[in-house]
Design a protein around this nucleic acid. Sequence first.
DNA 1: TGAATGACAAATT
DNA 2: TAATTTGCCATTC
Length: 103
Amino acid sequence: MDQPDTFQHRIWQIVAAIPYGRVATYGDVALLAGSPRAARQVGGVLSRLPADTTLPWHRVVNRHGTLSLQGERLLCQRDALASEGIEISDDGQLDLASWRWQF
DNA sequence: TGAATGACAAATT
DNA sequence: TAATTTGCCATTC
């Protein structure tokens, strides 16, 4: 099983701290995790999340304010964000200047 | 143990 | 200005 102090576990803690109705970038999460260059690992961790997780992974977007996912996962994230009051453009892009989590 | 992978980001062409 | 390539870092095979 996973160690209690792994990067993965730290990512979970940070993503869980994202306030409702806000979004954070992979780079921000990586920065808070202690590795500003580990943005890829953030995505890697979220990609391995269990289906029954309570983690608000849908609040994590790339630095362009777009969703890097594809297919059904992308639709699920867009729907989840819309449910929180976050408006997304037709191109799947949201206004980071307005929705980005300021910490 | 080593090589490959990946839900990003920045630099370069 | 836009598109492409390289670099990063932890996890996985």
